[in-house]
Deep mutational scan, measured.
Amino acid sequence: MGFKLLSKLLVYLTASIMAIASPLAFSVDSSGEYPTVSEIPVGEVRLYQIADGVWSHIATQSFDGAVYPSNGLIVRDGDELLLIDTAWGAKNTAALLAEIEKQIGLPVTRAVSTHFHDDRVGGVDVLRAAGVATYASPSTRRLAEVEGNEIPTHSLEGLSSSGDAVRFGPVELFYPGAAHSTDNLIVYVPSASVLYGGCAIYELSRTSAGNVADADLAEWPTSIERIQQHYPEAQFVIPGHGLPGGLDLLKHTTNVVKAHTNRSVVE
């Protein structure tokens, strides 16, 4: 069995187990497998329904001669939608809004960016022009300005110390501490036991640490421990890039980060 097929099978099995364990909360999309990078042309966006009122959005972007996937989250909030992270750029984010209108038909009224990198804030200006209120932590807003990236308009308070959590509509926002970046936030959907790890969490097929220019490698494993301790009931975990899975993604990420750190020390 090929690795790609095995990865998709694991996603399907995880979703099936969740649907059985929580039949009222989960209505997993039966329309197909989780979209992969090879299936999404740059400039297009796919939506994948995880649970009743919960979707991931998947886009792709060219970077350094390669094409990478990027995940975000959409959560229903009454007759409105909360968006977590842009679709990595203005063109993708405009396509995301169009796809949401086509498939869901509810307005996106608020959006949260989970850290300051372009795959999370690139497209904020498109959201703002569409009347979406954009939010991020003060740290993310400051770092985005320093980096020359787009800056969300509103500040999220109460997320300055490791372990801080605040309720934001249908989700809980959690600051686990520094990891992929010093400002990275985690998003949890309690009604569906869905954990969105953003770039602080890796997919299972990833074996290298990737972009760690703004990471705190020493603190990252401790931050992941905080996530595990705060959300032990999480059933569906979405990484910032690639295929979702279960809580095993947290341990896998820790292993990859520690291996990278150990290699760096040896070198």
Rank of each mutant, 00 (worst) to 15 (best):
S191W: 15
G197L: 03
T222Y: 13
Y48M: 15
L97T: 02
V67Y: 15
R46G: 09
S139M: 14
A234K: 04
A66S: 14
R206L: 15
A178I: 07
S137I: 06
N211E: 11
Y188C: 03
H230G: 09
N255T: 11
P69H: 14
P23E: 09
R142W: 09
F26T: 12
P69M: 15
F26S: 14
E145F: 14
P138C: 05
K102H: 13
S7V: 10
L73T: 01
G210D: 05
T153W: 09
S155M: 14
G105N: 08
G210P: 05
N211G: 11
G65E: 13
E147T: 15
S155L: 11
L13Q: 12
I224V: 11
A51G: 09
E39W: 08
A179V: 06
C199T: 04
D248C: 05
T36C: 07
F168W: 09
G242L: 04
V256N: 00
W220V: 02
Q49L: 10
S193R: 15
G78Q: 09
F174H: 00
G65T: 09
V67M: 15
V212C: 06
L81K: 00
G158P: 05
E233Q: 13
K8G: 09
N262I: 11
L13D: 06
D216M: 07
A111E: 13
A21W: 11
T261D: 13
W88Y: 01
L195P: 05
T153Q: 15
R167S: 11
S160L: 12
N262R: 11
S22L: 09
W55Q: 01
A213R: 11
E157R: 11
V189Q: 01
P170F: 01
G245W: 02
F168V: 05
A192V: 12
A19W: 15
S160H: 13
A178G: 12
L217Q: 06
K102V: 13
G246A: 08
Q228P: 07
E147D: 10
A144F: 04
G163I: 04
L5M: 15
D216A: 08
P232I: 09
F168N: 00
W220R: 04
A95I: 10
V108R: 01
L143C: 05
T86P: 01
S113E: 01
G123W: 04
N255S: 12
I20V: 13
L185P: 04
T153E: 15
R76V: 09
G78A: 09
G53L: 06
K8S: 12
G2N: 14
N149F: 11
T109C: 05
N92M: 00
S113H: 15
G2A: 09
G65N: 13
V37P: 15
T207C: 06
P138Q: 09
T134N: 01
V11Q: 08
T14E: 07
T93W: 00
S113L: 05
N149Q: 12
E33L: 09
G240S: 04
L10T: 15
T207Q: 14
A209C: 06
G105H: 15
